[in-house]
Design a protein around this nucleic acid. Structure first.
Lengths: 314, 314
DNA sequence: TTACCTCATAGGTTTTTATCTATGAGATAC
DNA sequence: GTATCTCATAGATAAAAACCTATGAGGTAA
């Protein structure tokens, strides 16, 4: 038997003949002519090199070998049916994987979406990568993930990005800092104080520094720290003051205070970024769709900027 | 996914690509050119309508859907391998069925071959049909069996026959019959006695009657009985005399005696008969081969007439 | 007998498939 | 920078597959 000359169509026709017990009937059911079916069976028998169906007293009789082949076909088609089911789930976004890489800061907001999504789609794997901006950028360059979360999206040559959340930056000081209760401050008022900053390249820092530069201001003292957590705690304990995303601040924590700086409005947005040169997994598409529909429900409504319909997910 | 545009060849190539992790390597192994393999994969992906293999950092990466398909293929090819094994056994005569129809008398000799054959080929089904000549002839006409056993084969229009055993007919009388110990008898000497005969049409009876006719002899009295067994027992108990196949006589039974009729040599042969207009099953072929090689071993050497090589089993 | 089934076969057409060669774009290796 | 891999794509061809119509042989049923 040469499996290479078998085709699924041939087997389909054969199965129908076995089931109906008639070549003409099969032809009618499959919208073929009777000679076509006869010929297919003949060819199948030649491929198998063994009679499968024989005429016996004007009736078709399936031989042993034919019956065996029939059962084999049933199993084979069963496997393909299973695969089709799997594919359907995969394409429906019910299965599969959606790898997301995000910059550190995003870990304060994204889980609010990921949790509900994961509950709604339990078969979707959701591996997360969290790193600083340069690490995530490197992953982005290599196209290692399905979705990237940035404030300040990278060059959009091979990517598209869409905002989903406003990301206001605020200045914080220890709760007992001398500026804490001043009604209206200017950015210049903060310059004398020591600033606790993330590494260069972090979106927050970039935004802040470009603001300073454009205004001709210079920090008198700054300290670099590796995480927003560390900065917040350091501010609370009086090491200095900082500019941080509003979203990273725990609510109801009184160990620091947000300043009222009237001449400055620093803000960026959170973006979902996908590469345009890579096929978007169905799971990723499904996640973005989910986000699009449920941003308001799971994130603070006041900051939501739902522009996800701008994404063209092929 | 449209299964109709899938071919086994396509899946074979796909599996090879997954295994080697390289399109070029697959091309080398399958003696194809690299573009051919590329194209096959592309076509498969179009059929499935889902990426199966993607380029990632200059390396081929199998997607989820691809891996799933690969596993599906493994199973499918496994089933066909099983079927191939089955076919091989079938074609080797190790499996399948060999239906044999024989006339009554043959049941005294054929089991001596069937037993050893069945032991040597335990997976071959051997359904037997035993009937009188006309019943077996009817089966033969309809082509219901693979092998027929006749003495006196039917018209050979759609059949071929080959002798395998001499079938001498002998005259028996009760052990205390007046003829029992006569040294030399003629056929005419037997005419006055009552003959116990099988039904008209039975080969034995036909042979006997044609001999009588050609010699101008007429039976004075005859009784018809349905089986050789019945005749033998009836002879033993004095109901008359009979002409029977030597093979149906149990050895060491002293309740009857074989006459020494010097002017008559009635004999036929046992034939295996197969139809020429029907495919001969591998099992049937295998049985005849077995008989051909082992006749002398399992049947009384003295009567064997091995002409089975005369059968042309296509 | 005729009409009407069955399946088989011959002969032909149109797609599809399985290949190839040639060529190009990227990446790596020296 | 050049050679040498990788894979992708375009264009061409020869074989095959998948059908069809027409026709015939053999059987059943009115």
């Amino acid at each position: 038997m040469n499996i290479r000359q078998l085709s699924f169509r041939l087997l389909e026709v054969f199965m129908s003949v076995v089931k109906t017990g008639s070549i003409s009937e099969t032809a009618r059911q499959l919208h073929l002519t009777q000679p076509t079916v006869s010929l297919q069976i003949k060819r199948l028998q030649e491929a198998v090199n063994e009679p499968l169906i024989i005429m016996q007293q004007q009736k078709l009789q399936v031989t042993e070998a034919g019956l065996h082949l029939f059962r084999t076909c049933e199993q084979v088609f069963g496997h393909f049916d299973d695969y089709q089911d799997y594919l359907a789930e995969l394409k429906g976004g019910e299965r599969g994987r959606c790898k997301i890489a995000m910059v550190n800061t995003a870990q304060y907001i994204l889980p609010k979406l990921l949790g509900p999504y994961s509950n709604a789609h339990p078969h979707v794997e959701l591996p997360l990568e969290i790193g600083n901006r340069s690490a995530v950028l490197a992953r982005f360059e290599r196209g290692e993930d399905d979705i990237y979360v940035f404030s300040h999206p990278p060059s959009l040559e091979h990517a598209q990005a869409a905002r989903f959340l406003h990301n206001p930056l605020v200045f914080i000081v220890p709760f007992d800092h001398s500026l804490a209760d001043v009604k209206a401050l200017t950015l210049a008022d903060l310059m004398p104080y020591r600033f606790l900053l993330r590494e260069p390249g972090s979106a927050t820092r970039m935004l802040f520094e470009s603001e300073l530069q454009s205004r001709g201001l210079v920090l008198s003292d700054s300290v670099q720290m590796a995480s927003n957590e560390a900065i917040r705690v350091a501010v609370s304990s009086g090491m200095g003051i900082a500019v941080l995303s509003h979203h990273v601040l725990p609510k109801g924590d009184n160990s620091f205070k947000v300043l009222n700086v009237t001449d400055t409005c620093l803000a960026s947005h959170w973006y979902f970024v996908v590469r345009t040169d890579r096929h978007i997994s169905h799971a990723a598409r499904s996640f973005i769709k989910f986000a699009q529909l449920n941003l308001e429900q799971y994130l603070d409504k006041q900051w939501v900027r739902n522009e996800l319909n701008g994404l063209n997910l092929h």
